[in-house]
Structures are given as structure tokens and as C-alpha cells.
Amino acid sequence: MSRNTLPVLTVVLAIFLLWYIAAIFLNAAWAHDKATRSGEVLTTQTLVADTWSQEKPKLPAPHQVGAEIWKTTVEKKITSKRSLIYHSWVTLSATLIGFALGTGLGIALAVGIVYNRTMDMSVMPWVIASQTIPILAIAPMIIVVLNAVGISGLLPKAMISMYLSFFPVVVGMVKGLRSPDAMQLDQMRTWNASATQTFWRLRLPCSMPFLFTSLKIAMAASLVGAIVGELPTGAVAGLGARLLAGSYYGQTIQIWSALIMAAALAAALVALIGFVQRMTLKRMGMA
């Protein structure tokens, strides 16, 4: 960890530096425009100052995004429609429900695939093939169709999240439940263990590292699903809606703050799973 701290900090610093420089270049045209219209002459200093403080810049500078996030999280009431925490919560709740449903379904299907040969041969190729299909493209349709049946709000988004998070879990768990080697399975056989005993005592514990790896992917996918699921609802609430509304009205700072918030959310969720993973595997002696 400490060995990597300095390089990582350097890279992060470099990214911020590049960001500020890029902001100057991308926003310079607008600054020049404005200057010509008002007849001002721009020195390098005023140019830089202007590019870092425009209201609708092509690329907002990091401190502008930071200020916007501060304003919409700390200074706004959580109940306000303009509070980023409110929108994050909307997205987060759909993400978590979808993630929970997808994980449950994924594990159930994986158990079926591992224990039933017909299911293995019939379903598994489709599970793999479905990974190659751009499922997100169906998202707007699912939303609209579910709306038409009278299901709206949280559930349609959660369905998309479930759909996206379900596949990594199936694939990972099938791999994990099959990870005990022939010797360990033979050993269970010599003890005349039942299928249930083999599952709880051998297969399930063995699958834990695989489960956590897939859970991280599933969580990230679930969040993407929730965000994309918010796009076709006409930008009501949620981080996806903030992105869409921002892009309608050219509110780049709003887009970036929603984006950074989504990134922070993803990082926090994945880190949380990583933490549980470390604790569990450490207790199980597998890490």
C-alpha cells in the first residue's frame, strides 16, 4: 500500500493538472469571443482566470465542480429537488434493490446450473452469449413497457439493475461452485456426504472468493443500470436524470458534479464490498 501511495498520488495530481490545462484550452474560444464582444484585451492571466470561472464552460475546472457539489450537498436541504444527495439516494436505492435481486437470482440460477446437467447444457451457453449482447440498449424499452403496465418509479430501474448485475453473479458463482477440485469432491464421497452437505460445507465456502469478485462487477453494473434506467423517464430524479437535464440545458457543471457523485458512489459501494471481502476471506483463511 505505502509503496504505491506516492506513484498513485503523482498520477492523481497529474490528472488534476491536465484537467486544469485542458479547461484553459477548451474554454479559451468562449473567453476570446466574450472579450472581443466587449472589446477587452485578454492577458494570459485574465484568460486563465476566465476559463476557470465560466458559467457554462465546455470543461469546468475541478474547483468549480467541487463548489457545485458542496453547494448541492451540504448547503441544500436533503429534501430539496436540487440536492445532489436526494438524487444520489434515488439512484442508490434502485441500485441496491436491483443488486440484491440480481445477486439472489444469480446465485439461485448458478446452483441450478451446477446441480442440473440439463440446465447446465441448456442455459449456460445463453448466459455467456447474453454477456455479449448490449443489454443496456433494452433499458428504455423496459422502462416504457413497465410504465405501460402500471409499474413505475423505483421498480423498473431496479429491474434493469437486476438484469445487469445478475449475469456476472451467475458466471462467477458457477465457476466458484465448481472450484472444489476432484480430490475434495472424492473426499466428500468417501464420507458418503449428501448433495446438501457437500453444498454447504464444501462448494459454498469454496465459491466465496469468486462470489465477491462478481459482486464487485455486479455492483458497478447495477449502478450503471440504474443511471441509464433514469434516462428515458423524462429526467425526473436521480443522477441519470441530472446528467440528461444537464445535457439539455448545457449545464456542464451540473453534469460533472452528477458524474463525480456517481463515481464516488460506485467507488464507495465497490470499496464496501472489498472490505467485506477482505474480512470474510481473512476469517476463512483464504486471503
Binding site: 498520477v11 465546455k58 441519470g240 458524474l259 467507488a267
Partner: peptide, 29 residues
Amino acid sequence: DFLRRGLLPVGNFVAALPVIGMAPILVMW
């Protein structure tokens, strides 16, 4: 080596982010 140790964790981090959210920005650009 310095770059690798710095970029790999950052890259792993970014790979887990909802990068697709960049879409509206890139459409503007």
C-alpha cells in the same frame, strides 16, 4: 515502474466507474 504502480490502481478504479456517464459531455464536445 513508477508509472505502472501509479496508473494501475487508478486504472482499476476508473474501470469500475460508470464511465458511460461521460456520454453527455462528449456529445457536447
